[in-house]
């Protein structure tokens, strides 16, 4: 697992993808910071930014996940990976954690804005902490879904578009009928912003993540028979 994690993480930053992801994320974060804090003059806290930036996540998470398995399959390097003594579980977790690590680094970078806010007024740190944790859990659920889609195809573009489509559908469905609220991950993120750690939502995110990781492993194992 560690070997795959190390290599995958390194690859994010050997190609432009890691920088593009972090760059785009911070650009949007900065814009929100400017509009909400400096332009409108309201002193607000980290949680609000996160609440707004999760919509952007829909479009940039696929940057991290689209190539995970699709590229390996297309270039044939999956042959190297799958014929090594490493287990499929280890390989999948390695890739998943590498993407998660990129999110963690991005979150750490957003602490700059928290620092600036603290200069004016120190916000409620518990709220900030819970929000950031919630954001990480949400991202992990997204990554696992994106990874699963990537394991189904050998075309990165297809993987990215299908992933975005699924995110957008789960985002917009509640507009049709409130019964779809169950499927919206954003709805599940809101409780974190209040600063109270929501157990139900956390279990929801974690189980979703585990489910898609397991599905990915099943797909990879089945490919041995079908391919």
């Amino acid at each position: 697992m560690w070997a795959v994690l190390k290599k995958e993480f390194k690859t994010y930053f050997l190609s432009p993808i890691g920088y593009v992801f972090i760059g785009l994320f911070l650009a949007m974060f900065s814009l929100l910071f400017y509009i909400l804090t400096i332009y409108s003059g309201a002193v607000t806290y980290q949680a609000v930014f996160y609440n707004a930036v999760i919509y952007a996540l829909i479009f940039i998470i696929p940057l991290l996940t689209m190539r995970m398995f699709a590229e390996e399959r297309k270039s044939g390097t999956e042959q190297l990976l799958m014929t090594s003594p490493r287990s499929i579980v280890g390989i999948t977790l390695g890739k998943f954690l590498a993407a998660t690590l990129v999110i963690v680094i991005t979150e750490i970078l957003t602490l700059i804005y928290l620092g600036i806010l603290c200069y004016f007024k120190v916000p409620d740190m518990a709220t900030v902490g819970v929000t950031m944790l919630g954001f990480l859990l949400l991202s992990m659920a997204y990554i696992s879904l994106g990874m699963f889609i990537s394991s189904l195809t050998e075309n990165q573009i297809v993987a990215a578009i299908v992933t975005i489509a699924i995110f957008v559908v789960t985002w917009l469905l509640p507009n049709l009928s409130t019964s779809f609220l169950q499927f919206s991950l954003f709805e599940k993120f809101y409780p974190y912003v209040t600063g109270v750690f929501p157990i139900t939502e956390t279990i929801n995110f974690v189980s979703l993540t585990i489910m898609f990781i397991i599905l990915t492993i099943i797909v990879l194992k089945r490919r041995k028979l079908v391919k």
Binding site: A3, V4, K7, L14, T83, R86
Partner: peptide
């Protein structure tokens, strides 16, 4: 030790990095 058809390689790595990764994968 397997050398597949069409020599699949991680193009973005250097030679040494690649061999090192393979060594790690192979425990």
């Amino acid at each position: 030790g397997y050398m597949p058809e069409n020599i699949p390689l991680y193009q973005e790595l250097t030679v040494k990095e690649f061999v090192n990764y393979m060594a790690e994968l192979k425990l």
